[in-house]
């Protein structure tokens, strides 16, 4: 029983992290229709930034989040203005190829900058506390609450502000949004900025809990895709729910199926994706735009 509860807790904590990790991917897809294959690599960039600040200034990763978020917002804004804007009207083929190229470039750029050696951020409080016989890892719990906070903030931004209204309008119908006077390029650039910042922030947040290396990104891209299909495009509760499903399944399999260990995550999310596609080919919920929309 204790083992089960322990696994459930680990799954929940992991799921919360997945929920915030997926937001950038999901909103970018929902608003602009861009499937960002470089998603995991932006997460890796965030983790490396946190490591860099920890090493040079001895800055705690959760404090350096305050610096990383605005920095990566600017990066995302510029990326949209320079690169992604050229892709919006093109078929998915071009988008996929460019983001794939971006992914490879980013991963190998980091390999050149920091070598392929795995790095870690050993924070002082990287232990766990006992609660009713279950050990709660402190860092992962902090990540979980930060994730919930970020999700609530994004939810408020999208639902309660004029900017959020503009973003949702741009997602629903671009031309109609233009007609009512929304500066679509600016809205897109801000959205991309938010998405990239969130992704890098998620990377920075988990930097104390796992090894950081240049090619760590790809599994996250794949998991993000599965979770988005599970939870709907740009739907924040859906992202959280999908993240929980994947997180708990992953931990349960690692706990109860012998001989597999924790490195089975990608295969598991792939199996989950295939099952969803067989059962409900149109995706579970639509969110900001219909999932099966074909732009080419």
């Amino acid at each position: 029983m204790t083992q089960f509860l322990q696994a459930l807790l680990s799954g929940l904590l992991l799921g919360g992290f997945y929920g915030v990790m997926v937001l950038g991917f999901s909103v970018l897809w929902g608003v602009m229709g861009i499937i960002n294959l470089a998603h995991g690599d932006f997460l890796m960039t965030g983790a490396y930034l946190a490591w860099l600040m920890f090493r040079t200034f001895n800055l705690d990763p959760f404090i350096s989040l305050v610096l990383i978020l605005p920095l990566m917002f600017v990066v995302g804004y510029a990326l949209q203005k320079i690169l992604l804007n050229r892709l919006i009207e093109r078929p998915r083929l071009a988008t996929l190829l460019v983001t794939f190229g971006l992914s490879i470039s980013l991963a190998n750029l980091h390999k050149i900058l920091y070598t392929a050696d795995p790095r870690n951020v050993p924070v002082a409080y990287n232990g766990s506390i006992e609660l009713w016989g279950i050990s709660v890892p402190i860092v992962k719990a902090i990540v979980f609450f930060i994730a919930l906070g970020m999700m609530s903030l994004l939810h408020l931004l999208l639902q309660r502000t004029r900017l959020g209204k503009a973003i949702r309008a741009a997602a629903q119908n671009k031309n109609a949004a233009k007609i009512v006077g929304i500066d679509i390029d600016r809205v897109y650039a801000i959205t991309a900025g938010i998405c990239i910042a969130l992704t890098a922030g998620a990377g920075a947040a988990i930097s104390p809990t796992q090894a950081i290396f240049p090619f760590m990104g790809q599994p996250f891209t794949l998991k993000a895709f599965t979770i988005t299909v599970l939870g709907g495009l740009g739907r924040i509760p859906g992202a959280l729910l999908g993240g929980m499903v994947l997180g708990i399944t992953e931990v349960m399999v690692a706990t109860y199926v012998p001989g597999i260990g924790t490195n089975f995550g990608v295969a598991l999310s792939l199996i989950l994706l295939v099952v969803i596609l067989i059962v409900r080919p149109q995706g579970l919920s639509s969110g900001l735009r219909p999932m099966n929309e074909d732009r080419s």
Binding site: R92, V229, N263, V266, A267
Partner: peptide
């Protein structure tokens, strides 16, 4: 994956690649 339009095939193949290696 090929019954669907859109990008499912691309990502599923990327996933299959990583999963098979595992």
């Amino acid at each position: 994956t090929l019954r669907l339009k859109g990008s499912y095939f691309s990502i599923a193949m990327l996933g299959t690649f990583a999963a098979t290696r595992e």
